[in-house]
Computed example of a mutant assay.
Amino acid sequence: MEVAVFGIGGKVGVLLVPALERAGHEVVDARGGGIDRCDVAVDFTRPDAVADNAERCFQSGLPLVIGTSGFDLEAIDAGAKKNRIPCFHAPNFAQGAVLMMRFAEEAARILPSAEIVELHHETKLDAPSGTAKATAARMGTNPPIHSVRLPGLVAHQEVIFGGPGETLTIRHDTTSRDAFVPGVLLALEKVRDLPPGLTIGLDALL
């Protein structure tokens, strides 16, 4: 499979490219030409670059996996449906983060009082994170979200629940961006089988 990579030199891109090659895929730098011949594309860039990158994919009939967060979900969904292109986005591609969100959703049914603390590296542009917003949406209790941006962090989140005489903390720590790679590879393999539009969440593929 030929994969066009937007953000090939970024923090995730530099890990993703060798993983794609080890899996037998051919990598194409999406900054240049040649994406028309690709089978699928992946975007790990910046929120303000996603719309233009997606439009290039739509014009090329190229299914797209988006790992960037903070972009306009509704606009991408509308464009993908208009052009009948399947797109996929996960707030977090780490499998442990998916479990954390599942557990938080379950806990919120019993302990509705909760707050979310998300912590990321200082260069992350969006706050709150996509993972925190997705977690809050799944919990359905409108929990407050606190964002921390500091050097030395990668991606971390804890959901703290409180009840009479007890607290419960559900936490996930990404200590290396290597944690994202298996989820991205899975999405690239399955995105072409998804319906036109934007499918959200790794749960949809597991």
Rank of each mutant, 00 (worst) to 15 (best):
M1P: 08
E2D: 06
I8E: 11
G10H: 12
G13M: 08
V14P: 02
H25A: 14
G32N: 11
D36R: 12
V42R: 04
F44N: 05
T45N: 06
R46P: 00
D48G: 00
V50T: 00
A51I: 00
D52N: 11
A54G: 02
Q59A: 15
L62Q: 08
V65W: 07
I66K: 08
G67A: 04
L73N: 00
G79I: 02
A80I: 04
K81W: 01
K81L: 07
K81M: 09
N83K: 12
I85N: 04
I85H: 06
H89G: 07
H89F: 14
A90M: 03
P91S: 10
N92Y: 05
A94L: 04
M101D: 10
E105Y: 03
A107C: 11
A108H: 05
L111K: 01
S113Y: 04
A114Y: 08
E118D: 15
H121Y: 08
E122K: 13
E122C: 08
T123W: 13
L125M: 09
P128V: 03
A132G: 02
A132Q: 02
K133S: 06
R138K: 15
P143I: 02
V154C: 11
A155S: 15
H156Q: 12
H156W: 12
H156E: 12
E158P: 01
I160Q: 05
G165C: 10
G165H: 10
T167D: 14
T167G: 15
L168Y: 11
H172K: 05
S176E: 12
A187K: 04
L188F: 10
E189I: 03
K190Y: 07
K190G: 05
R192C: 09
P195H: 08
T199F: 12
D203P: 03
